[in-house]
């Protein structure tokens, strides 16, 4: 990779990392969607990991996670008299999202664009399911309450609308990452499974 390509990569990533979280937390969709917005941050991290490999996925995951913590972090309410705003939960979660998105199925799917939607679907589901498990545990631990969302609420009012919105919003994210950068031709040639000959075979959607 030449110096020019490296600078371009860093600049394009910086623009994505600054803009995507700002867009996600600045607007609300109309009430019929339960106030859900597409999780652009999750999509960006998952697609980056899937298309461009572990290092890109991990670093982008860490930085996007930091943005998530900064803009709209979770609150720890062990003591309801003095809840704290946590920093680091988003970083940790998105770091692992980036890493796993680059490892699970990325090679099996040969980093093909069309299969990126499957990856988005898979990781949206994983994120929501693990999120609900943790939320359930922390709700029971912190408040001592055993009341949490019912199974149907979890499925139909949380996982389903969020996953649907993510699938729709994945289209522009995937196209941006593929055609606008950070890599020329949308291919990270540093990856071992993407050689000069292989790219033509697998990268055409």
């Amino acid at each position: 990779m030449t110096r020019k390509e490296r600078v371009r990569k860093i600049l394009v990533y910086a623009v994505y990392i600054l803009l995507i979280p700002a867009v996600q937390v600045s607007f609300l969709l109309p009430a019929p969607l339960n106030g859900y917005t597409p999780d652009l941050m999750l999509l960006f991290v998952v697609v980056t990991g899937y298309l461009f490999g572990t290092y890109d996925g991990a670093i982008v995951g860490l930085l996007i996670g930091l943005m998530r913590d900064y803009y709209a972090g979770p609150a720890w309410t062990m003591s309801s008299d003095r809840p704290s705003a946590l920093i680091g939960v988003g970083m940790l979660g998105f770091f692992y999202l980036g890493v796993f998105a680059s490892l699970i199925f990325a090679k099996t799917f040969h980093r093909r664009l069309s299969m990126a939607f499957v990856q988005v679907l898979l990781f949206s589901l994983i994120y929501k399911i693990i999120g609900h498990i943790f939320a359930y545990i922390f709700t029971t631990v912190s408040s001592g309450s055993s009341t949490y969302l019912t199974f149907s609420q979890v499925v139909f009012q949380s996982i389903f609308p969020q996953t649907l919105l993510n699938m729709i919003a994945a289209v522009p994210i995937i196209l941006c990452l593929r055609y606008l950068g950070p890599y020329k031709s949308g291919i990270n040639r540093m990856l071992p499974d993407v050689g000069e000959g292989k790219e033509k075979k697998w990268q055409i959607a």
Partner: peptide, 10 residues
């Protein structure tokens, strides 16, 4: 900024 999802909701 608004909430990012139901858990990142500060």
């Amino acid at each position: 900024t608004r909430e990012a999802d139901e858990w990142f909701s500060v």
